[in-house]
Amino acid sequence: MNCVVFAYHDVGVRCLKVLLARGVQISLVITHEDNPTENIWFGSVAALCREEGIPYIAPEDPSTPEVIAQIRAAQPDFIFSFYYRHMLPVELLELAKSGAYNMHGSLLPAYRGRVPINWAVLQGATETGATLHAMTAKPDAGFIVAQTAVPILPDDTAHEVFGKVVVAAEQTLWQALPAMLAGQTPHLPNDLSKGSYFGGRKPEDGRLDWNKSAQDVHNLVRAVAPPYPGAFEQIAGDKITLTKTRRVPAALSQKLTQQYAGLAALLDEGRLYARCGDGNYLQIGHILINDKEVPLEHYLNYKTA
Rank of each mutant, 00 (worst) to 15 (best):
K17D: 09
D209C: 13
V13K: 08
S63F: 12
Q259R: 12
T128W: 02
A274P: 07
I235C: 07
W210F: 14
A176M: 11
G124K: 08
G163W: 01
Q184L: 07
A130N: 09
G53A: 07
H218Q: 12
F6S: 02
G163I: 00
P295E: 04
M180F: 00
P59Y: 02
P55C: 09
A169G: 07
D61T: 08
E52M: 07
G237N: 13
V150C: 10
M1K: 13
N290Q: 04
G113C: 02
I144G: 07
I152R: 03
G237A: 13
K138T: 15
P226E: 06
A274V: 15
C15F: 07
Y260H: 15
A58Q: 09
E33L: 14
R271P: 04
L95N: 02
R72A: 11
A158N: 03
I40W: 07
V115M: 13
D155H: 11
A46Y: 02
T136R: 06
I240N: 04
E66M: 09
C3E: 09
I152F: 01
L263H: 10
N219V: 08
D10Q: 03
I152E: 01
E94W: 10
C3P: 08
V161H: 04
E269M: 08
V165F: 02
P65L: 00
G230S: 06
I235M: 09
H159Q: 13
Y281R: 11
A168W: 06
D291W: 11
G206V: 05
V166R: 07
R50M: 14
Y111P: 05
L296E: 06
P65G: 08
E170R: 05
P186H: 06
P203W: 13
A274I: 15
R14A: 11
S98I: 09
A141L: 06
S81K: 11
A134I: 04
A7I: 10
E33K: 15
L208V: 10
N118P: 00
S213E: 00
D140C: 11
A231D: 09
V224R: 05
L153Q: 13
S253M: 13
P89E: 14
A130I: 03
T241F: 04
M135C: 13
A176V: 14
A179W: 00
Q258D: 14
A125W: 08
T136F: 10
V11R: 02
K97E: 14
L188S: 12
V167G: 07
T257V: 12
K17A: 10
E60T: 15
Y84L: 10
P116G: 06
I79K: 06
L296A: 07
P62E: 09
M1D: 04
F80Y: 09
V161L: 06
H187T: 11
Q258N: 13
A305Y: 13
A169Y: 02
T245D: 01
F6C: 03
V161P: 02
G113A: 10
I71M: 09
D209I: 09
N280M: 13
L16N: 13
V5A: 12
E38G: 03
F82E: 13
R114M: 15
L88N: 03
N190K: 02
G183W: 08
G163V: 06
Y84N: 05
I284A: 03
Q175F: 02
G230D: 07
I26L: 12
W174H: 14
V4N: 06
L252G: 08
K244F: 11
I57L: 10
D205G: 14
D191F: 00
N301Q: 15
I71R: 04
L220D: 00
D291P: 00
